[in-house]
Amino acid sequence: MTIFRKVQGPGFWDFLEFNRMRNQMDKLWKAAVGKVERFKDGYAGVFPLINIHETDDNITLTAELPGVKVEDLELSIKSDTLSLKGEKKVDERPAEANFFRQERIFGSFRRSITLPAKIDPDKAEAKLKNGIIIITLPKAAEAKAHQVSIKSE
């Protein structure tokens, strides 16, 4: 009897439990660290979430707006502030619909973003495709980096 118990041992179940705990800890750690990094980055927690990229010539803003129609979006630029306003409307649903899941969120939104460089608002472009808006803002001439040649004497 004793030998049998030893062979089966407590180790196996302990190992499972340990593994489960370790996974849990990993998850918590990732969540905590992820959040911190985002807040450092100026994460505002306002809809819609925005990514901003910069090249030598352009500033590009992208946001995910699934289900938002072009006619329900308004984009404006005033000096160094870009405003994105709109409404995510619910498509028509039958009155007698019986819901099993309701995870999508609808409503109006407005977000203003201070741009990281001076841009030329006349050349700004925006397109909405597959529920993603891409706003391309060419930098103003004075905001672009100019190469300065150095003379040796």
Binding site: E64, L65, P66, G67, D91, R93, P94, E96, A97, N98, F99, F100, R101, Q102, E103, R104, I105, N130, G131, I132
Partner: peptide, 22 residues
């Protein structure tokens, strides 16, 4: 993806938000 699922007398409808997927 966040989803809505509802049923009416004719069937079930599932809506899933998949921005960027073509």
């Amino acid at each position: 993806p966040p989803i809505d699922i509802w049923e009416d007398e004719k069937g079930l409808t599932i809506e899933a938000e998949v921005p960027g997927a073509e």
